[in-house]
């Protein structure tokens, strides 16, 4: 048998400690969601898992947290899905179209369009949050899905990403396709889109997670409880924990878990696409 080197033990120890630091805090939420609230209130998070998860899950999904009775977990989950999907799909479709126009057409104002679009990479939404809010308000889009999604799309990350990718596609491909009689739409549909499949998947994961996890913008734009997303609802949920006799720790914590579950699962299961999307988008 080979002697295990001390170095290997150190390496694994570091990695195990690192992994525990990443996992334990979330496991703690799960533990609290499985324990009766009264116990949590007395002792905080413990080591033993209880049997309350199904009950808390039901409460979280179907019992409203606010006053209007509209923001049940189910409703918030639905809104989160719309935000995540709408954002990801919108951004990819719009970005691919724009990138296609910039890379594959002889456009007089291509450079101008390029700069107009790519300047948006410089300023995140957060620095222009108030005026954006005012404009959405002026347009009557508060508490709407459009108001929630479209302003978030107003940055060119996906466009930039696809532009980079399209540029790396060999020149000869469009030339061969043109000789083969493919026009601009056919070339896009028959060749460029299938060729970009992995890129689209990678982008989709990054964008879905990004959209799903939005907090500041939904906090400002949605005041109507029926429009809350899970992530946006968190603040209200934690606030209801304050000043009650028996805070609903179980329900609150299972909502946190539900809020992170879809993006976490996507990231874990489509890990290689996710890593590709993250490292190649270079923002």
């Amino acid at each position: 048998m080979k002697r295990i080197k001390l170095e290997t033990i150190v390496d694994h120890s570091v990695l195990i400690i690192g992994s525990l630091i990443m996992i334990l805090p979330v496991a703690m939420l799960l533990q609290m969601a499985s324990t009766p609230d009264i116990e949590t209130m007395r002792n905080g998070p413990g080591l033993v898992f209880g049997d309350q998860i199904p009950a808390n899950f039901e409460k979280a999904m179907f019992e409203a947290s606010g006053f209007s009775g509209e923001n049940t977990g189910l409703r918030m989950l639905y809104n989160s899905l719309i935000l995540g999907l709408g954002f990801a799909i919108g951004k990819i479709v719009i970005g691919m179209m724009a990138a296609y126009a910039i890379v594959y057409f002889r456009l007089k104002f291509a450079t101008l369009a390029f700069w107009i679009i790519f300047t948006t990479l410089l300023l995140p939404l957060e620095v222009r949050i108030l005026p954006s809010y005012e404009i959405v308000q002026k347009l009557g889009m508060l508490n709407t899905y459009q108001g929630l999604i479209i302003p978030l799309i107003a940055s060119a990350t996906a466009t930039f990403f696809f532009r980079q990718f399209f540029r790396s596609v060999p020149e000869e491909l469009i030339e061969a396709a043109r000789i083969d009689g493919a026009g601009p739409i056919k070339f896009f549909v028959d060749i460029l889109v299938p060729l970009s499949r992995t890129m689209i998947a990678a982008m989709f994961i990054i964008m879905f997670v990004y959209g799903w996890n939005q907090y500041l913008w939904p906090t400002m734009i949605t005041t109507d409880e029926g429009m809350f997303t899970l992530v946006r609802g968190i603040k209200q949920i934690t606030q209801t924990l304050e000043g009650t006799n028996l805070p609903e720790y179980g329900k609150s914590n299972i909502l946190q878990i539900i809020a992170i579950l879809p993006p976490v699962l996507i990231v874990i299961f489509f890990q290689s696409w996710f890593v590709k999307g993250l490292t190649e988008s270079d923002k």
């Binding site: 990443m22 997670v209 990231v267 890990q271 890593v275």
Partner: peptide, 18 residues
């Protein structure tokens, strides 16, 4: 690798709650 990267998907306010 999985253990060390999955927290990417955790929303910042949930991290705050933790």
């Amino acid at each position: 690798r999985t253990f060390l990267m999955w927290v990417y998907a955790v929303a910042p306010p949930v991290a705050g709650v933790i």
